[in-house]
Amino acid sequence: MRNIILFVPLAVLFTLLMICLLGGTKVLRNVTYHLGHEDHLYTKVHECMEMQGVDVLFFGSSHAYRTFDPRIFAEHGVRIFNMGSSMQTPLQTEVLIRNYLDTIKPRLVVLEVHPDVMPHDGVEPAIYQVCNVPPSWKMVPMALRTRNMRVVATTAYALVHNSLSSEFRHFNEPVDVGEDHYVAGGYVERDTAYYSPVTHPSKEIVTRDLQRRALERCVGLLKGKGMPYILLEVPDTKVLLSSYTNLDCFQNDMMGYGEFYFNYMAALDDSLHFFNEDHLNQRGVELYNAYVCDSIIIPILNSL
C-alpha cells in the first residue's frame, strides 16, 4: 500500500514535468498554449494595471468588447475600461474580478450576459485566459471546474511557462489583427461591414449549472466588496432574438442576479447596424453606446 501512496504524487509530478518540458513543442494534443488572441486580453490585463479613475468596468464576452467603446463614453464624460474577452463566461469573469477589481477600483461594474454564453462549457475561453493573463493560482479552480483535461493540462503548462519564460513578459501583441483594430481601454473595433439577415433555426437557451454557480459567485464577490453592479444584455439582431424559444425565461432568470437591463433599441436595424447576427458594427455601436450612456450608466453613476 505504501508503494501506491508513493506512486500517486510521483506520477503527478512526472506528468507535470513532462507537460512543462514538451508543452511548447505543439506535439501534446491537450496542451494548446497560444499567446495573443483577437480579444487582445493580454494587452488589456497589462493596460488595466495603469488605469486610474475608471467609472465603469465592463466584463463579458465579445459582445462586451465589441460593443462598449471607451471613446464614445468619454465624449459623454464617462471613463470606462472594457475587460471583455472571447466567449468569456462567468467562470472566467470570476478570475478577472478576483485579480483586477481591486486594482482598477471602478465606481460601477457591468456584467454583460448573453443567451449564447450561459450555456457554454467555458473550455475555449478558459484556454485563452490561462495563456494570456499573468499566472495566478486563482486560475487553477477555474480550470478544474471545467472538468476538461485540455484546460487542466494547458493551465499547468501556462502557469509554469508564463512565470519563467521571457516570451510572456516581452510579448508585443499587434494592435491590428485582420479586420480588427484594438482601441485603448479594451475595445476592439471591426472594419465597418453589414449583415445580411438570414432566418435562424429555433433554439432553446439551456443555462449550464456550472455558469449559473459562477455567476452567483461573481455577484457574491461584487456584493462582498460593496461594488455597485448591473447586468446588461447587449442588442442582437431581431432574426437571432426571434430564434430563441425561451428568451423570456432567460431574462427572468438574469433578473434574479441583480438589476438587469435588456432594452433593445428599436432604432437598431439588422442590416444597417450589425456586422453579423450578434455583433453591432461601428454605426450600431455609436447609436447604442450613446443610448446606454445617457439612459442607463450616467443616471446610475449620478445616484451613487
Partner: peptide
Amino acid sequence: RWVGYMLLIFIIVCYMQT
C-alpha cells in the same frame, strides 16, 4: 515498471479525447 506506468498516465492526460 513505474516509468512505464507514468508514461502511460502522461499519454492519457495529454492525448485523451476531452
